[in-house]
Simulated scan of single mutants.
Amino acid sequence: MKLLYIVPNINNEGGVARVLSVKTNYLIEKFGYEVHILTQNEGFSPLFYSFNSTIFYHDLLLNGSFFQFFNSFSKGLKSKIKTIRPDVIIVCDNGLKAYLVPVILNTNTPIIFECHSSKYIEEKEPTKYFVSTKIKILFKELAAKRFTKFVALSKESLEEWNVKNGIVIPNPLWFEPITSSDLKSKKVIAVGRHSYEKGLDRMLQIWQKVIQKHSDWTLEIYGKSTKNDNLRLLAEDLNILNNVVFYEPVQNINEKYLDASFYLMTSRFEGFGMVLIEAMASGLPCIAYDCPCGPRGIISQNKDGFLIENGNESDYVKAIETLIENATLRREMGKNAKLGSEKYHIDGIMETWNQLFIGIKKN
């Protein structure tokens, strides 16, 4: 069977690129699929993650004004589909243009939308004018129904969309968790790009309050920095540079979890929270804001971590202090976290994808 994935780019260190490499490699190596990936503006090179050497890469050059951009996307997409002739198309793109793929193509070929974000996601801090935001949400809701299948990463995510063509398939864990952290180091870890939706600015403000009482603890943040370097400037303004270390993305992030004692997430929006299951598989308790809409489907409250009311800074600080001060609770939650991560084993999840592809092709 021939699959075509449509994605903005895969030459980055983000979670979508990581998951796509893991899934496409498995589909090729275990099930014998032929996989094509269509990116935009040379978004397939150079690759950060390892993709199977048999994958076929295609690219669309998109630029110009809004209408020129969309016109290039529409014409280029039709041309590529005609050339590739896939059995199934999978769209992995949060951009508004992605929701128009079924309309643009108007084809009998099954088209799956793989949703990697909340319906309410904002990549930049919203202005006081909310009309455009409401229009975008309505557009997404209507367009989501046009796909053959709408795949959400969690039950909570699917409930956000309220579509009849929906199904839940979580992301798989990409490494085999052999060892666990001993949870003895005075380090906590966070992973995410320096962007508005990841909410790392909120984390720094929380950490400032934590180290007033626990100045011997360090926060390590792994993620792609921005040209403006706003987070480092904020850390400097908060006078916490001695207790925060910023790292660029690394491929062996699973090894870095083993040096930490628990994991922090302060995202404003999430589609799933891949980093949470990575941390849990490494035996780390997790603390996360209950944002739309990933963490609440992963963390079991007071069992393997803490789910904090979104934006409740004081409760978040208390949760961190609880794990810092109670090593016994850390160890208990860490064991539960590792057990909880087992349901994300790659074999079962990829068999679900395999059966989905087989089923929609037959129908």
Rank of each mutant, 00 (worst) to 15 (best):
N63E: 13
N63Q: 10
N63S: 15
N63G: 10
N63Y: 12
N63M: 05
N63W: 08
G64Y: 10
G64D: 11
G64C: 10
S65G: 07
F67M: 09
F67I: 15
F67G: 01
Q68G: 06
Q68N: 12
Q68A: 13
F69E: 09
F70G: 03
F70L: 15
F70D: 04
F70H: 12
F70R: 07
N71G: 07
N71V: 12
N71I: 12
S72W: 04
S72I: 08
S72F: 09
S72N: 15
F73R: 05
F73Q: 06
F73T: 08
F73Y: 15
F73W: 15
F73M: 13
F73S: 06
F73G: 04
F73K: 05
S74L: 09
S74W: 05
S74C: 08
S74F: 08
S74T: 14
K75L: 14
G76E: 05
G76L: 10
G76T: 09
G76H: 07
K78H: 07
K78T: 05
K78R: 15
K78A: 08
K78Q: 13
S79K: 14
S79N: 15
S79V: 09
K80M: 11
K80V: 09
K80I: 14
K80E: 12
I81G: 03
I81P: 02
K82R: 14
K82S: 14
T83C: 11
T83V: 13
I84S: 06
I84F: 11
I84V: 15
R85M: 13
R85S: 14
R85A: 13
R85C: 13
R85T: 11
P86S: 08
P86M: 07
D87Y: 04
D87H: 14
D87A: 08
D87P: 03
V88G: 02
V88C: 04
V88Q: 01
V88T: 06
I89V: 11
I89S: 00
I89Y: 02
I89C: 03
I89W: 01
I89F: 03
I90G: 01
I90R: 02
I90Q: 03
V91I: 12
V91H: 01
V91A: 01
V91N: 01
C92R: 00
C92S: 10
C92V: 07
C92F: 01
C92W: 01
D93R: 00
D93L: 02
N94F: 09
N94S: 10
N94E: 11
N94M: 07
N94G: 04
G95I: 00
G95P: 01
G95F: 05
G95A: 06
G95E: 06
L96W: 03
L96S: 08
L96C: 00
L96E: 06
